[in-house]
């Protein structure tokens, strides 16, 4: 069945508002498959909102979000559940399960997806990949903010998803741990399509194949990372050069 194998996503003239406030306007882009698309921009530009829409957590949007050519809102419940099992999501708030240990959180995700036999080994291996094997018996409230973030990332990775939607996976991590996480994500290129939001310009430079740059809820740039880094657009230059003066207020 085509939908079970097609994990593509595209946005076509998508708009979204929180109450009376417009968060996104006329966003159109298609993240290339099995590559890394970084969504970036100044604070409040709509990065996290865009990821929530891609993760099907909001449905009251204008325009169209399609997978395999079909609008997400037209999927049946069964199709939507099957589609969601192919994507790994890490958003804010992190959504770790307070009543479960780190290992328990991952075993829960695995069992919920119907893979009961895989639980223990897969959970421990995934925790190890994010540097948390030593904390497998800890509850989220016993972890630092950075550790909780890594646990949330492990939850997104544990089912080997074909698409990853990640909201600032290295924010709050020390630079060495952050680099390890980035390398982990970069290693998935080719086997998963990754849409990642970050304001960290070094991470954009290092990781992105393509960049979607948002300003005040609008797509200001979408294209190859190399073109983004070399652009002489004043908004992009102010952002990349961390200048407090410029067209971005």
């Amino acid at each position: 069945m085509a939908l079970m194998t097609d994990c593509s996503l595209s946005m076509d003239s998508v708009g979204f508002s929180w109450g009376g406030r417009v968060a996104l306007q006329s966003i159109s882009f298609t993240p290339p498959q099995n590559q890394i698309t970084v969504v970036t921009g100044p604070a409040g530009c709509g990065k996290s909102t865009l990821l929530r829409l891609l993760a099907t957590l909001e449905s009251d949007y204008r325009g169209a979000i399609r997978t395999g050519g079909r609008e997400l809102l037209t999927l049946t419940r069964t199709e939507l559940v099957a589609w969601r099992r192919q994507i790994g999501v890490m958003l804010n708030p992190l959504g770790n399960f307070d009543w479960l240990t780190a290992e328990g959180c991952l075993e829960f995700v695995i069992a919920h997806a119907g893979h009961k036999g895989l639980g223990g080994e897969r959970a421990v291996a995934t925790l190890s990949s994010v540097g948390l094997e030593w904390a497998r018996g800890r509850f989220p409230h016993e972890m630092s903010g950075g550790m909780q973030k890594r646990l949330a990332l492990a939850r997104a990775l544990v089912l080997s998803p074909r698409m990853l939607i990640l909201d600032d996976p290295t924010a709050g991590l020390d630079p060495v741990t952050g680099r390890e996480i980035l390398d982990l994500i970069a290693g998935l290129r080719g086997s998963a399509s990754i849409v990642l939001a970050t304001s960290d310009t070094a991470n954009v430079r290092r990781l992105a194949d393509h960049v979607l740059f948002l300003v005040e809820g609008r797509g200001h740039f979408f294209g190859a990372n190399e073109a983004f880094q070399k652009s002489d657009d004043p908004y992009i230059r102010q952002f990349l050069e961390s200048r407090t003066e410029g067209p971005i207020s």
């Binding site: 100044p42 604070a43 304001s199 952002f239 961390s242 200048r243």
Partner: peptide, 17 residues
């Protein structure tokens, strides 16, 4: 405690200043 975590580079510069 982590004053610039999660901030974009422009606002990171403002907080650092």
């Amino acid at each position: 405690d982590e004053p610039t975590t999660g901030l974009d580079p422009i606002n990171t510069a403002r907080i650092n200043q």
